[in-house]
Amino acid sequence: MKSALPLALTALLAACSAPIERIALTPQPSALELRPLVGSAMVRTVSLPTYAAAEEIAVEQAGGLIATSEDILWADDPERAVTLFLTQSLADILNTTVGPEPWPFVGLPDVSTDVQVAQMIAGADGTFRLTGQVYVGGDGINFRNSADTFAIVVPMVDQSLASISAAQSAALVELSELIAGKLGR
């Protein structure tokens, strides 16, 4: 009888808690089409700041403080979602084989990209900011290594979650286009 009590309490508490709502990144295709300089490219798992890597949606408050709420969460792990978003965008722009890390195909990719995000936040000023560095280097072929910084700012309609998701997606499309410019012409 004693072992049934904790199980019953757990079930009761679960029934009382409200379901967690989730929001996905808003899909946005790029209009850019480039001829690829490579046959394949790998997108390494994108490195995000701690607040952006969490399930909770981070929003900058007045004074620069970053606040999160557990009421609505991202639908997917943010690092995975951003990595897959960039992978799909690059594949669409370049019309070539692009895969995430770990490389899902036999052999080495021609090049790999490594994105290190310094800032990814819905700002108190009504903009979404995405900053950091992107590294491109040859893996399977001799390809010129490059390192570039990026500072992308996208205006938001308002501070709603739908607006934040749309602005984040627009910023990621812009980042995809910047990376594609290194891999195509």
Rank of each mutant, 00 (worst) to 15 (best):
S3I: 14
A4E: 13
L5S: 10
A11S: 11
A11P: 00
L12D: 10
C16S: 13
S17N: 13
I23A: 00
I23R: 03
L25S: 01
P27W: 00
Q28Y: 02
Q28E: 10
P29N: 12
L34Y: 10
R35A: 15
L37K: 14
V38F: 09
A41L: 09
M42F: 07
T45I: 04
V46G: 01
S47D: 10
L48E: 02
P49W: 04
T50N: 14
A53Y: 04
A53I: 05
A53F: 02
A54Q: 15
A54Y: 06
E55Q: 12
E55H: 00
E55D: 12
E56G: 10
I57K: 07
I57V: 07
V59N: 08
A62M: 10
L65N: 14
I66C: 09
E70Y: 02
D71C: 06
D71Y: 03
L73N: 03
L73K: 07
W74V: 04
A75Q: 08
D76F: 01
D76V: 09
D76E: 15
D77A: 05
D77S: 07
P78E: 08
E79C: 10
R80W: 11
V82I: 12
T83V: 00
L86K: 04
T87M: 11
T87I: 05
Q88T: 13
A91D: 08
I93F: 02
I93H: 05
L94M: 00
V98E: 03
G99A: 13
G99S: 07
E101V: 07
E101G: 06
P104C: 11
V111K: 06
A118C: 04
Q119D: 15
I121M: 08
G123E: 13
G123N: 12
F128Q: 02
R129I: 01
L130Q: 00
L130R: 01
T131W: 09
T131I: 11
V134F: 14
Y135D: 11
G138P: 04
I141S: 11
F143E: 07
R144S: 14
N145L: 14
N145F: 15
S146Y: 11
A147T: 15
T149S: 15
F150K: 05
I152K: 05
V153Y: 01
V154G: 04
P155V: 05
D158L: 13
D158P: 02
Q159V: 10
S160M: 12
L161S: 05
A162M: 10
A162C: 04
A162S: 13
S165R: 09
S165A: 15
Q168R: 13
S169I: 02
A171P: 05
A171C: 08
L175M: 03
L175T: 00
S176L: 03
A180E: 01
G181K: 11
K182L: 03
R185T: 09
